[in-house]
């Protein structure tokens, strides 16, 4: 379970407060969506939770299954079960996709005191997962995300998620840059991972992704706070009326 309480975050380099008291709890098995206009702090929330440099937490807490996330290195957070699907997946020339995934999987296992996965088992596992995401063998051999199309990059994120089996998945604008078919494929990948032990936090601008990944709870974020929480209908309301009404209501 992800529990965020009164989280205040500012940029390290400049005196700019981005998050101004976020409260949010994502239970296992649930899909929470965060929507909101540009600059509301959605992506910052995902970066802070995953441990990216450049942000300073000035107040509040964030825990995953009771462990203090903010006190951990990014790799420790990953081993504890947190996964961030990047809005802009990073290209790493020279590192093969397979090598990358195997290194990551084994590092997490090691951190949890589990034995490493054998080369044979790994190969079997990745082939099976890749197939459902329509990722071909060629893509697995290529350097991480290098020369991948936008859709391929996002599918590759979901493949990593499927391989690493986190308990808490954060999807940061996973729909951005995707056409409808690519979005469906990604959403299917995500839906296949939904189970009672796994929570999701889906960050998105648009309602359309939520047609494919059905949320249990929808939050509206604005100016560093969650200003409204509701059911799936709330996303439809945004789709129909935009954010203006909600923002006015909150003020």
């Amino acid at each position: 379970m992800l529990e965020i309480k009164n989280l205040h975050v500012k940029l390290e380099e400049e005196d700019k407060q981005i998050l101004k008291g976020v409260d949010l709890t994502v239970e296992p098995g649930k899909v929470h969506a965060i929507m909101g206009p540009n600059g509301s702090g959605k992506s910052t929330l995902s970066y802070v939770l995953s441990g990216r440099d450049g942000y300073e937490v000035t107040d509040g807490t964030a825990t995953l299954d009771g462990h203090d996330l903010l006190d951990m290195d990014p790799e420790e957070r990953a081993a504890a079960g947190l996964f961030l699907a990047f809005q802009y997946p990073v290209e790493i020339p020279g590192v093969g996709n397979m090598t990358f995934l195997r290194t990551a999987l084994n590092a997490q296992r090691k951190a949890r005191g589990e034995p490493e996965i054998s080369a044979g088992d790994f190969l079997k596992l990745i082939r099976e997962k890749a197939k459902t995401l329509k990722i071909d063998a060629e893509m697995l051999k290529r350097p991480v995300n290098v020369g991948f199309s936008g859709g391929e990059k996002k599918r590759n994120e979901i493949l990593q998620m499927a391989m690493l089996e986190p308990t808490m998945c954060i999807l940061d604008e996973t729909d951005s840059g995707l056409d409808v078919d690519a979005m469906k494929l990604v959403a299917e990948g995500v839906n296949a991972l939904r189970d009672e032990g796994r929570g999701f936090l889906v960050i998105t601008h648009y309602q359309r992704l939520l047609d494919h990944i059905k949320p249990d709870v929808v939050h509206i974020m604005s100016n560093g706070r969650i200003i409204k929480t509701g059911g799936p209908d709330l996303a439809l309301e945004v789709e129909n009326n935009g954010y203006a009404d909600l923002l006015a209501e909150a003020n």
Binding site: S50, G51, R52, D53, D73, P74, E75, R77, A78, A79, F83, L84, F86, P89, V90, E91, I92, F100, L101, T103, A104, L105, A107, Q108, A111, Q160, L164
Partner: peptide
């Protein structure tokens, strides 16, 4: 950025 990406997947620094 690449370093953070790797670490976010569980690879120690």
């Amino acid at each position: 950025t690449a370093l953070f990406y790797l670490r976010s997947r569980g690879v120690p620094e």
